[in-house]
Computed example of a mutant assay.
Amino acid sequence: MTQEEKENIRTKIEEDIETLKEQISTLEEKVKPISPDCSLGRLTRLEAMGEQHVNNKILDESKVRLTRLRNALLRIDKPMFGICIECEEEIGTGRMSVRPESVRCVACAGNH
């Protein structure tokens, strides 16, 4: 991987981190408990609780991805960055551009 490709990936990671921070902030507002005395109807309340559950799942996944992106940012200058931890082949720059936190190539990720 060239230094220019690494710089492009670094920029992508930083942008993704900022986007995730904003998303996490928004989701944290959406998953606040729904008070029992809320003036919603019974079905509307159940729908709100279902939506809250979905938002909790997205929030959890966003936090995990944020941690992975931060770790990728710490690893980007290391020689093993962009090398698959399974087969030790280079991870394609296309994959790294889309999912810069990747530690496995497409083939190994499919087998995992």
Rank of each mutant, 00 (worst) to 15 (best):
A109N: 05
F81M: 05
T19I: 09
T11G: 00
I91G: 03
E89Q: 15
R45Q: 12
D60K: 13
S97D: 08
A109S: 07
E5A: 14
R95Y: 04
E90D: 13
R42S: 08
S35V: 04
N56G: 01
E15V: 02
E86P: 00
I83R: 06
E90N: 13
P100D: 09
I91W: 03
P33Q: 02
F81W: 14
G92P: 02
M1V: 06
R70C: 02
L59F: 04
T93R: 06
R45G: 04
T67W: 05
D60R: 14
E101F: 10
K12V: 12
T67E: 14
P36W: 11
K63T: 03
P36K: 11
E5P: 00
R68E: 15
G110M: 12
R95W: 04
A72C: 06
S62Y: 05
S97K: 15
M96A: 01
G82T: 02
K12L: 07
G41V: 01
A48R: 11
K21W: 01
R70L: 12
C105S: 08
L73E: 12
V31K: 01
Q3S: 10
M80A: 10
N55G: 04
E22Y: 03
C84V: 01
I13Y: 02
V106K: 08
K32L: 15
L20V: 08
G41M: 01
I76R: 03
E15S: 09
E88S: 13
D77I: 07
T26W: 08
M1T: 10
K78N: 13
E86L: 03
N56T: 04
M96R: 03
S35Q: 08
T2H: 11
E15R: 09
E61Y: 09
V106Y: 03
I9K: 03
